[in-house]
Design a binder for these strands. Sequence first.
DNA 1: CCATATAGTCAAGATACTTGACTACACCCA
DNA 2: TGGGTGTAGTCAAGTATCTTGACTATATGG
Lengths: 167, 167
Amino acid sequence: MVNKLDEKSVALPDHVGWRLWQASRAWQAEFAAAMRAAGHAWFSEARAGLLGHIPRNGTRQSALIERAATSKQAVQQLLDGLEEEGVIERLPDPRDGRGKLVRYTSKGLDALRDGDRIKLEIERGYIVRIGERRFAALMDALRALDAGQGDEPETAARPRDETSESK
Amino acid sequence: MVNKLDEKSVALPDHVGWRLWQASRAWQAEFAAAMRAAGHAWFSEARAGLLGHIPRNGTRQSALIERAATSKQAVQQLLDGLEEEGVIERLPDPRDGRGKLVRYTSKGLDALRDGDRIKLEIERGYIVRIGERRFAALMDALRALDAGQGDEPETAARPRDETSESK
DNA sequence: CCATATAGTCAAGATACTTGACTACACCCA
DNA sequence: TGGGTGTAGTCAAGTATCTTGACTATATGG
């Protein structure tokens, strides 16, 4: 039963936003599946997004809120979950009675190590798929995009100098 | 408040998954903000993800389920919302009493036109920011990645619906 | 001490998405 | 012709994530 509409032939979007979205989702799905397969059943993409902002040596909860682009309540709820899973722990900040320090437990550091390994494996797969040259060009373009992103809060896409790492 | 925290010097992740995720989120945020500013208050990123799979001339609801990588119930709920907003409408498929045809209303086509315009504006901004050459390399790499996606058997996310792609 | 700002929490609700159970129709085939 | 099986879509309930608003506790600067 071939439809005359023939949906198969209708082109999917092919603009940069769509491509980025598809590529990002594919990477995340692959990574999350590998993490769960490695025994980290607590892993989810939302949690990964937060963990990406927590350095190895820990951080203030408030610093986390600044880095991740979400509300402090969202950060807190994610941290609640991660703490319950035993991935991170929260300690009172000795220098500020209001603050809390977030740091990894040994279980969390374990997951981080597995994550690093999996990242490299995925990256290797990408290089095999599209070639080293194209992969390097991809990273180069993404870094350049990020460097130009920083200080303009509105949608005005104004060019900035491409010197990065001014954090 | 002055921030003299040592955490500032800790590097953020710099692997392809993180970069893709950040770039994708930035694009989506910019696009969604512009869409809402253009008067399409119903617009959300989840809805955008579904609309990207609905061609101009409409489609079967079941075809939509195949294309988007989610459950049929998720698709349906998204469509329910879009129908309620008057963006799409569902008609019975004259060729199959079980099926429904999803197509845009004039309001939906209006939004599509605005979306196309905004996409081009964002793309122009990207080209200004990173240069035409790098932008072309980005698109090239993303397309290559997508083309090589299909034959990945092991770790890729699989549809969990019993109806998968057993044709 | 008081005013105000900051760090974090609690609670309620919205959205997106999942699983399970169900109805209606289509198609095959004996 | 009629039942078995598969497909298209719906209904209902639950989970995860994220948002807003209200709140407590501590810090800081007069």
